[in-house]
Design a protein around this nucleic acid. Structure first.
Length: 316
DNA sequence: ATCCAGGATGTAT
DNA sequence: ATACATCATGGA
């Protein structure tokens, strides 16, 4: 079932610009405070919404200076982007400049963030290894579903699950002869069955995804019940979605809603706490969170967490 | 084969 | 509030 395919194709083909509705642009790296590492930003396991156009698998081969194209679909618009020597190039069916700046956190001043972050061997090594990585601002619902799926899953498989959801339930858009799949809407996922989602390989997360999609689609609980609340209240509010505990809640706060102080306590970070910050290991999630947040530098603790996560997970 | 992966839920205490 | 078993799937 492929709803709206024809309508969207027609709209794009007849759209404004003379080249089939495709616009192009470039954002100078010099205009991005602290620089950019696009690959680290979109492949390190914080966003599952960017697909490498060359079809290569994620992980591995940090393409140094690699200029692979990535694409995503946002609000019905295809956005393609790649990093070259001195610019972030993009092609899209709309003006992607402001969208990319938002999605990829290009306004975050990395130098200021590093300057405001405590220094120790682990933190320094992580920031050195991945300088240019930015915290993304993914759209809320796709981010929420991605991280519900992330429970007890490896990064590569979470990408696969997201791709399966898009290719099975996402609306298609064709640009220049290439077909792209958007992330499915809440209504579409709410209309699936647990058995269908299990067949996609979601396992026991299947009913969580379906139920949470239903909550968003019906308005029972939405982004608006979370965004804007003080950090810990927002985390608590997010656990009202099914399949969302404190860790997934922290991921959504950090990678979608811009709470840069959120520190998801996943297995890697818990191990790091045991090995490097044993005094931060408290009894509860909330208490450990407060302790490690202070250690990682309160306001940007989530930045430090994401660098440390990327560093620990990829060092041989 | 056994262990583990960006954990959450339901139940018993 | 905290402790525990249980939950799918695939790769190492």
């Amino acid at each position: 079932m492929v709803p709206h395919r024809r309508a969207q194709s027609e709209r794009l083909l007849s759209g404004g610009s003379p080249r089939g509705g495709v616009e192009r642009g470039a954002i100078p790296i010099s205009a991005i405070p602290g620089g950019l590492d696009l690959q680290a930003t979109v492949e390190s396991g914080q966003s599952y919404l960017w697909t490498r156009a060359d079809g290569r698998t994620y992980e591995r081969e940090r393409a140094r200076g690699g200029s692979a194209w990535y694409w995503t679909v946002l609000d019905g618009e295809v956005i393609r982007t790649r990093q070259v020597d001195d610019a972030l190039e993009w092609e899209a069916t709309t003006d992607a400049d402001p969208l990319l700046r938002e999605l990829l956190g290009l306004g975050d001043d990395l130098d200021a963030i590093v300057a405001a972050t405590p220094s120790d061997d682990l933190i320094d090594a992580a920031y050195d290894a991945y300088r240019g990585l930015r915290i993304v601002r993914d759209p809320f619902f796709p981010c929420l579903v991605s991280f519900i799926c992330s429970a007890q899953m490896r990064v590569a498989r979470i990408f696969e699950m997201g791709a399966a959801l898009r290719e099975t339930y996402g609306e298609t858009i064709t640009v220049d002869g290439t077909t792209y799949h958007a992330f499915p809407t809440p209504g579409r996922l709410a209309a699936t069955t647990e058995a269908e989602l299990r067949d996609l390989g979601l396992g026991y997360r299947a009913p969580y995804v379906r139920r949470t999609a239903e909550m968003v689609a019906s308005g029972e609980r939405t982004r608006d019940d979370v965004a804007g609340l003080p950090y810990e209240e927002a985390r608590e509010a997010l656990t009202g979605f099914v399949g969302v505990g404190p860790k997934v809640a922290d991921c959504v706060l950090l990678f979608s809603l811009g709470y840069l102080e959120a520190v998801p306590l996943d297995t890697w970070i818990r191990t790091a706490i045991e090995d490097h910050y044993p005094d931060c290991a408290k009894g509860s999630y909330a208490e450990t969170s407060r302790a490690i947040r202070k250690r990682f530098g309160d306001e940007y603790a989530g930045y430090t967490q994401t660098y440390v996560f990327a560093h620990l997970r990829t060092r041989e």
